[in-house]
Design a protein around this nucleic acid. Sequence first.
DNA 1: CTAAGTGCAAAAAATTTGCACCCGG
DNA 2: CCGGGTGCAAATTTTTTGCACTTAG
Lengths: 143, 143
Amino acid sequence: MGKHTETLRRMGRTSTRGREGILRILEETSIPLSPKDIRERFPEPKPDTATVYRNLSLLSSLGLVRSVALHERCRRYEAAGEGIHRHRVVCRGCGRIEAFQVTTCHLAGIEADIRRRFGFKVTDHSLEFFGSCPECRKKEGAK
Amino acid sequence: MGKHTETLRRMGRTSTRGREGILRILEETSIPLSPKDIRERFPEPKPDTATVYRNLSLLSSLGLVRSVALHERCRRYEAAGEGIHRHRVVCRGCGRIEAFQVTTCHLAGIEADIRRRFGFKVTDHSLEFFGSCPECRKKEGAK
DNA sequence: CTAAGTGCAAAAAATTTGCACCCGG
DNA sequence: CCGGGTGCAAATTTTTTGCACTTAG
């Protein structure tokens, strides 16, 4: 049916309104969304909160979605996929979030180092920046 | 009284058992702890959970403590300070956490870039790695 | 038809808040 | 003594779970 039916099918899962919806919603935004945000963006009838959580957890384990931690009370999620590799800057003042792509991730060296030192095989990383956006800096004076 | 009385005093705050305790506990561990972990490591009488939360939030705003997001249900905290700059590797299989220091953080370039592109002044970042530890890789076979 | 997915209600876990009492300076 | 800090209880918020009903394949 939807755009992701195939992908889900290939992974042995059914394509449902809840799953298609979450994937679509996450693809339409550049900043990660909380489960609540996601639910609210569904057209009526909105899926149950429990369904959103269950599907996020399933899609995460399939690698189609990834959780992003921005040091808030709740987790956020973003679409995950092949070439997708984004990072974020979060303003400590107003909470504004900007996303950007990094051309080459300078972290390959660190990952190799981790492999050597701990034997951990790194499959993923998360990198977030925090600071003040132009507006908040202006407000606070010459900080 | 305690080791941190001076620091707190200088920042216009009182030194109390709760605050000294949290700072001491976080300095004694290399992996970040959850509020619950922290409370449990207090000798009797343990402070109230609310007190732990209130103090973590205060110490965070003073920059003496920092929250670390490891994509779990709860936040964790670590001691923050001058030269302290640690990152972590988390095993997706068993949850084991290893901490390590990075000699030079390769991120200065990215931070400058963010400044140029968004006008954000980056004051901090968080970088976490996820993967499988040697034990979990062994268990799962030749992954 | 049948397993997998969903809604609904309730539980569990994490975090926050109000208020009265207590203690550090 | 006084204001900030704490305990205790209760409220909020986030996330999970059990169960009966529905639906995709």
